[in-house]
Design a protein around this nucleic acid. Structure first.
Length: 811
RNA sequence: GCGGGCGUGGCGGAACGGUAGACGCGCCGGCCUUAGGAGCCGGUGGGCCUCACGGCCCGUGGGGGUUCGACUCCCUCCGCCCGCACCA
């Protein structure tokens, strides 16, 4: 055999050129007889060069896209860039380089790498979210939401990052710190734009049942929405004649309320305290609480603090006067900003009562130490005594309703989505402020509101855009009078909440999308990305689709029918980072071993949904395997004539042909369950078997085995697969239907019968596949090593698993 | 604290309730070769008995249970990872 070297540097560009020239991965918006499949990876943020995580995401996605194509689907597989955002802007502040320029450079690096990796993308649909031809429509969606009342502006206590000089969404605050830079966030009262995602809380929750997502992602979304059923109960302050409703999930504990607490932000606290001996103390406490960082304030471990307001409210169920307090453990944003304190049955209230020496009254006998939250019969609860608390719950709510002192109610942890950002590199919010007309939307035909260039990107507590005076000062589209533009930009999560819709109709310059085209492609059949987006992006995108569908602009209730979350790639057991110096540069790996090796290896080292640790020795093994497969194909092509697959193979031919069919079956099944690691293992086995039988098997069987291996490896190593398949058959593997296993060849005439005695394997026998259970039992009993274990024992029972084993139970 | 996940050779990992350790890395041996860091072939969980063929025992974080049979199902404990965390 001739000396031959597997040379990805020659093979890979050659096939990339073919795919380019033949537009192999482009797909038109004209439907045909094939069913559609929309396969999508979460769009990357273009910063620097692609990293190993991108390689993993797209290795998974591309395998799925190829598999679907060859199973007869018309596959949409696009990509683009989530190009607005802070890193590019921070880079601009440091270097003065326009974010547009640094972003463009990075996009070019992504384009180069993705082509070198041979990912099967329809590049005709590519865009960046920072391009006016895209964000024009982001602005259009904003106006639609505004029109519908789903975008609104209000003053609110918002989370402010002093380092990034911008407000943040609740979802972007982690442990009281900015998710981007890690600085402690502050609370500020500011007027900001919000999206009314809370209107959709119930549907966002319920519709989780209709989609195929990993259970833990659904759980995270459910927790984030945080639906709580309970009741609103009205407590009246007689002194001032004001009713204060509270939300409680435990109306059954109403008789156990011994105090009443308001949040420091509650608008009435000063009014209540005015003229009492506590007035001064309340002022001091509230000021202190408001200046506390979110982290300090939010710490559940910290001892309970608060001050009395010097007033009382009336408990509607028993007329008791409960002392009022202000305390920072009560949050203004949840419920009504006030609570009833039930120290016997709530841990926090219990702590507070102990700190302030307040009475603790048990109203449910739950058989545990106080505070207890369990169930049991009611006590100290008037007419409800003796009833089970669950029953009393319903009755108390009905009683409150009848008396006009309350009603059943539902609360959510989810808050409206704060979308204003006081930053430069984002999508401008398309409204102006007019002295006469107030907030005026920019008319649709004047979009896009183009992001102007500025000199200084550094934020100074207001958006850098405010410095672009010529741009800011404009005319009111409504009255023609002087007006000022909104200078805040939108949260970049707005950009990424609809990009998958735009891919469907990316070239459309008349509309964001053509309704028919989007309805045809959507929903995304398989979405692939990191679990870090389990809440933010995935919740926002779902909200957008529901809102747009309600406006009859779409018919997409859920954008992502199925979600696959891939695990991280670590090195030496920990997350890769430049500071640790444990990064693996995918470009270097693919330069050295070829893209196919890099892609295959990353899928081979472990289940793709789990974190996997990169090993430099391991990648050599995968390179060896691909070289071995390639060499097999080349040798077989050269040394044998193009012989047909034997119709009735025998002997070693049969063994090899069977192995090929076994591999087809195994890989197909593994593809469907994303078990790419074991799928690749199956191709290993087929290649190994081909080498073992290289001299014994005939040319037809050998060719069949080699071309099957090429065909099966193609979704993971497309260049190598295409090259070997082409050499052996002269055909383009990506146009070939996915192979089907012949059921006759999956079955064998004989099998290895395992014989157990009392569950322990004692022998293995070759048995005929057509043997009856009785015949198998008889065989089993006769096996020499089995007889030794049966000797002197009584057979109690014999279990036969056809095609597998016999277990003889003895005493 | 609450919720979710995980625990298998020296390592990454395989195993519809039915042969534990597929496949790969590493290691050992052989062939080829002037050479081999190339390639091909074989071996490789631990302990014990046997010249050998072969056989026996132990083994999937610990303990218990269900079952003819448990890595797999149930209970419990330990350890690690990831979410959420004063949401009334």
């Amino acid at each position: 055999m001739a000396e031959r070297r597997y040379d990805p540097r020659e093979i890979e560009p050659r096939w990339q050129e073919v795919w380019d020239r033949e537009h192999s991965w482009e797909v038109s918006n004209q439907p045909d007889e094939r069913p559609k499949a929309y396969v999508l990876e979460m769009l990357p943020y273009p910063s620097g060069e692609p990293h190993i995580g991108h390689l993993k995401t797209y290795s998974v996605g591309d395998a799925i896209a190829h598999f679907r194509r060859r199973n007869g689907y018309r596959v949409l597989h696009p990509m683009g860039y989530d190009a607005f955002g802070l890193p590019a802007e921070n880079h601009a502040i440091k270097t003065g380089e326009h974010p547009r320029d640094s972003t463009q450079k990075s996009i070019e690096a992504f384009q180069r790498q993705f082509r070198a990796w041979g990912i099967s993308i329809d590049w005709t649909r590519e865009f960046g979210t920072h391009e006016p031809r895209y964000y024009r429509w982001t602005q259009w969606i904003f106006l639609k939401l505004l029109e519908r009342g789903l975008a609104y502006r209000r003053e609110a206590a918002v989370k402010w990052c002093p380092h990034d000089q911008t407000v943040l969404a609740n979802e972007q605050v982690i442990d009281g710190r900015c998710e981007r830079c890690g600085h402690e966030v502050e609370v500020r009262q500011l007027e900001q734009w919000f999206f009314r995602i809370t209107d959709y809380a119930d549907r966002l929750l319920e519709d989780l049942d209709t989609i195929e997502w990993p259970e833990h992602v659904k759980t995270m979304q459910r927790n984030w929405i945080g639906r709580s059923e309970g009741a609103e109960v009205v407590f009246r302050c007689e002194d001032l004649g004001i009713d204060y409703p509270v939300f409680t999930t435990r109306p059954d504990t109403l008789f156990g309320a011994t105090f009443f607490v308001m949040a420091p932000e509650h608008p009435d606290v000063f009014r209540l305290a005015a003229g009492t001996e506590h007035e001064q103390a309340v002022h001091e406490y509230v000021n202190h609480a408001l200046n506390e960082s979110a982290e300090q304030r939010g710490d559940a471990e910290k001892p309970k603090t608060g001050v009395p307001l010097g007033r009382t409210v009336t408990n509607p169920v028993n007329g008791e006067q409960l002392p009022m307090f202000v305390a920072d453990y009560v949050l203004m944003e949840y419920g009504t900003g006030a609570i009833m304190g039930v120290p016997a049955h709530d841990e926090r209230d219990h702590e507070f009562a102990q700190a302030f020496d307040l009475p603790i009254r048990q109203v449910i006998e739950c058989g545990e130490e106080l505070p207890c939250t369990g169930d049991g019969p009611m006590v100290n609860s008037g007419q409800f005594d003796g009833k089970h608390n669950r029953e009393a719950y319903e009755e108390i709510v009905r009683w409150l309703d009848r008396e006009g002192r309350g009603h059943a109610s539902v609360n959510y942890r989810l808050r409206d989505w704060l979308v204003s950002r006081q930053r430069y590199w984002g999508c401008p919010i398309p409204v102006v402020y007019c002295e006469g007309c107030g907030i005026v939307p920019i008319p649709e035909d004047q979009l896009p509101v183009v992001l102007p260039d500025v000199e200084d990107y550094a934020p100074k507590g207001r958006s850098p855009l405010a410095a672009a005076e010529d741009w800011v000062n404009t005319k009111c589209p409504s009255c023609g009078g002087p007006a000022r533009r909104e200078t805040d930009t939108m949260d970049t999560f707005v950009d990424s909440s609809w990009y998958f819709l735009r891919y469907c109709d990316a070239g459309n310059d008349q509309a964001a999308w053509d309704r028919e085209v989007v309805d045809m492609w959507m929903p995304v059949d398989q979405y692939i990305g990191g679990v870090e987006h389990a809440i933010l992006h995935l919740m926002y995108a779902r909200f957008f689709c529901k809102a747009l569908t309600d406006m009859d602009l779409l018919d997409v209730n859920e954008p992502f029918s199925a979600l696959f979350t891939q695990g991280m790639v670590t090195k030496d057991g920990s997350k890769m980072s430049k500071s640790k110096g444990n990064t693996v540069d995918p470009a270097r790996i693919s330069d050295r071993y070829g893209a196919d090796t890099a892609r295959c290896y990353i899928l081979f080292i472990g289940p793709p949904d789990q974190d996997v640790d990169w090993s430099d020795e391991g990648v050599e093994g995968t390179h060896r395997f691909l070289a071995r497969l390639w060499r097999l194909g080349m040798d077989v092509a050269e040394s044998t004539e193009a012989a047909p697959v034997p119709e009735a193979p025998e002997g070693d031919d049969l063994v090899l042909v069977r192995k090929a069919h076994w591999a087809i079956e195994k890989v197909s099944a593994d593809m469907r369950r994303f078990a790419f690691n074991t799928a690749i293992s199956a191709v290993h086995e087929l290649v190994n078997e081909s080498y073992r039988l290289r001299d014994a098997a005939g040319p037809g069987a050998l060719r069949f085995a080699a071309q099957t291996a090429a065909s099966l490896i193609f979704p993971f190593a497309p260049h190598t697969g295409a090259d070997v398949y082409d050499r052996l058959t002269g055909r383009q593997v990506w146009l070939e239907p996915w192979p089907e296993a012949d059921p006759d060849l999956l079955e064998t005439d004989t099998f290895t019968l395992v014989v157990q005695v009392n569950g322990k394997v004692r022998d293995r026998l070759e048995a005929s596949a057509s043997a009856t259970p009785d015949e198998l039992k008889a065989m089993a009993r006769e096996a020499p090593n089995v007889r030794a274990h049966l000797d002197g024992h009584e057979i109690v029972k014999e279990i036969v698993v056809p095609g597998k084993l016999v277990n003889i139970v003895v005493r």
